[in-house]
Amino acid sequence: MDLLIEGMREAIEMLISGDPEIFEITWLTLKVSLSAILISTLIGIPIGVILGLTAFRGRRLLLVLVNIGMGLPPVVAGLWITMLLWRSGPLGSLSLLYSPFAIVMAQVLVSLPIVIGLTCSAFQQIDKNMLIQIKSLGATRFQTVSLLLRETRIAIMAAIMAGFGRVIAEVGAAMMVGGNIRGETRILTTSIVMEVSKGNFDVALALSFILMSLAFIITFFLTILQQRNKKQ
């Protein structure tokens, strides 16, 4: 209990004193996580829509892969990215390993299947008559999809939030591909792991409060966005 109160005090002090290192870590966390979920959203929603609306050979196999991907262990994702970016690996010449970019890649890898899978299931649930109804109003294919996105916006926002939750909580892959380098790739989750291993529970707690506040604020705004124009 003392530890908890101490941690909270520490966190508030750190925030008030404006410790530049904390600020830097938080800022990087925010940048990396938001980039990752933005990329996953931009790629994942179109793929999810196609998987949900169309029938083609290999669709079922693709769905199985997406569903497995939803539970992909982050350390496995981290391992893949590491091998890809390793000096002698296929993308080694770009020397991206241990950069924020590598963390974004790993986080996209773990959140993309969630966005695709949940978007796809939202679109599969659409009444077939709704498609006919929209077509009967003279919609082009693009207009049809945008109307359907509006109809399913609550489920789509849920997909984005679930993806974001995975990204912000993820540590295994970020540790592996980022390396937790001070001032370069240290983000909130990796520094919490480090502080705990050093026995600095108070600092770790302080960081965890910041992390949770971040997650809370962003999810709060996404929820507001999701629920707007929705009375009751």
């Binding site: 009444d127 008559n129 009967s136 003279g138 124009n229």
Partner: peptide
């Protein structure tokens, strides 16, 4: 298609 209009049996109204 845009010359025709259809009222389907199932009333499917948009969520707006």
């Amino acid at each position: 298609r845009r010359k025709w209009a259809v009222v389907l049996q199932q009333t499917l109204i948009f969520d707006t």
